[in-house]
């Protein structure tokens, strides 16, 4: 009876781990999965395998997955600028806008990675994988971000309060499907 209940729990946990949105939760569900499976090994009379499963499945793989997720949190920013623009140098070298953006992302436990690109904005939006695409013209600053990105609201608040003079427009873009960690 107990083994049947535990086996059903295993299947349910596996399905939950597959269907969660956030990877971190899926890792925790996998840890619980292997803990229950180690208990099942114990009930089937294999204590040796149970110890190995408990240690390796629950501790070591969970920590490894969490570390891998932490390395995955890289926030890619495309900064596109027109190559004909005369004051392009001012933007790329130590602009306070970029520095503030970087410090904000670091506070949110993300690792900013900024790519300066001279491609037109349309090709970046359609081809490349990005989290933010910034396009700065004389009058206004356009920022493209994916709709699913939950960091975007906090980012918008921060930018509007600190850089209100730059005339920032934040455009939520539907097709970006990365960044789910």
């Amino acid at each position: 009876m107990t083994t049947n209940i535990l086996l059903i729990t295993l299947v349910v946990l596996a399905i939950i781990a597959l269907n969660t949105q956030k990877l971190r939760r899926a890792v925790v569900y996998l840890g619980v999965f292997s803990l229950i499976s180690s208990f099942l090994y114990l009930l089937y009379g294999a204590p040796d395998v149970a110890i190995a499963e408990a240690v390796i499945g629950t501790t070591i793989t969970t920590v490894l997955y969490l570390v891998a997720l932490k390395k995955y949190q890289v926030f890619t920013i495309y900064f596109c600028s027109d190559p004909n623009d005369p004051n392009r140098r001012n933007l790329t070298n130590n602009s306070p806008f970029i520095n503030n953006l970087e410090s904000f992302l670091i506070k949110q436990e993300m690792e900013p990675q900024i790519i300066y690109s001279e491609k037109p904005l349309k090709t970046i939006l359609t081809q490349d994988k990005f989290d933010l695409a910034i396009c700065q013209t004389n009058q206004k600053t356009l920022i493209y971000g994916s709709v699913d990105d939950y960091q975007l609201d906090a980012l918008e608040d921060y930018l509007l309060t600190n850089h209100g003079d730059l005339n920032i427009h934040l455009i939520r873009y539907t097709e970006g499907d990365d960044n789910e960690a």
Binding site: P47, D48, A50, I51, A52, V55, I56, T59, I60
Partner: peptide
């Protein structure tokens, strides 16, 4: 008793 080199080593690595 149950256990042995591999399991104990994994606990130590933890």
């Amino acid at each position: 008793s149950p256990g042995g080199g591999f399991q104990g080593g994994a606990v130590l690595a933890a």
